[in-house]
Design a protein around this nucleic acid. Structure first.
Lengths: 114, 114
DNA sequence: AATGACTAGTTTGTAAAACAAAATAGTAAA
DNA sequence: TTTACTATTTTGTTTTACAAACTAGTCATT
């Protein structure tokens, strides 16, 4: 892992928000999500992370999964966003804005430190 | 907790980087760090989080703590940054830039979704 | 038909992390 | 002397990450 990769530690807490953004756009299944995340630098988010996270999000009522057969392989479980999920998505957007503003402030006020 | 507060979940992984930024600027003790973090919206990061984190950072060799008496109360443990810590700080800065670019891309390409 | 490559999901077990809460301890003002 | 504020450590519980193993489907080679 290069020093510019996003570490699993930093991804914590943000991953769920990103999944809400994706699933809000269109129904996604787990495997496709991990492929989509790769496009945004979240290379190789382990399936041991992503599938259990999707299950816990379903348990919280943020998304609902519907299995559908695929002619390219085994069944896919497509997750759809719920009303609760849409609210959680908006909350995430607000929190992410706050977080990045604050962290950037903290960094920039100390830019000149060795 | 209001919906615009930064959740503990989202702070994970970023907190250590922020501590490195602060301690790189000047030696800090735990209590002062939690006060400084409040200025940046990280209100009430629990001491059950911050003190064990500082200890684990010392164990990793990123910082070293030196206790000094205080006339305003009990002893303070001032943490100083190490060479390893300075490197970790730079790595964090690179990763944070990557992360915020990628998350903002993911969000902005879906800005118009309901 | 057997093998390997790719797709797709669940379950299990372990290690790490968050953090509430309690314990300890110092100063200072009411 | 009681309360408030400062300051750190330790303990125990809950949550989380995620590696690894298992199941299972398609398709192209061998």
């Amino acid at each position: 892992m290069s020093q510019n990769d996003i570490s699993s530690q930093m991804l914590k807490g943000i991953l769920q928000g990103c999944l809400l953004i994706l699933i809000n756009q269109q129904p996604y299944y787990g495997y496709a999500i991990s492929q989509e995340l790769s496009k945004y630098g979240f290379a190789d988010v382990p399936k041991g992370t992503i599938y259990p996270l999707l299950m816990s999000m379903e348990k919280k009522g943020l998304i609902v999964g519907k299995t559908q057969p695929s002619k390219d392989g085994p069944q896919r479980k497509y997750y759809h966003i719920t009303t609760t999920g849409k609210q959680a998505r908006q909350t995430f957007l607000n929190k992410w804005d706050m977080l990045s503003l604050n962290v950037n402030d903290l960094i920039n006020e100390r830019r000149n430190d060795t």
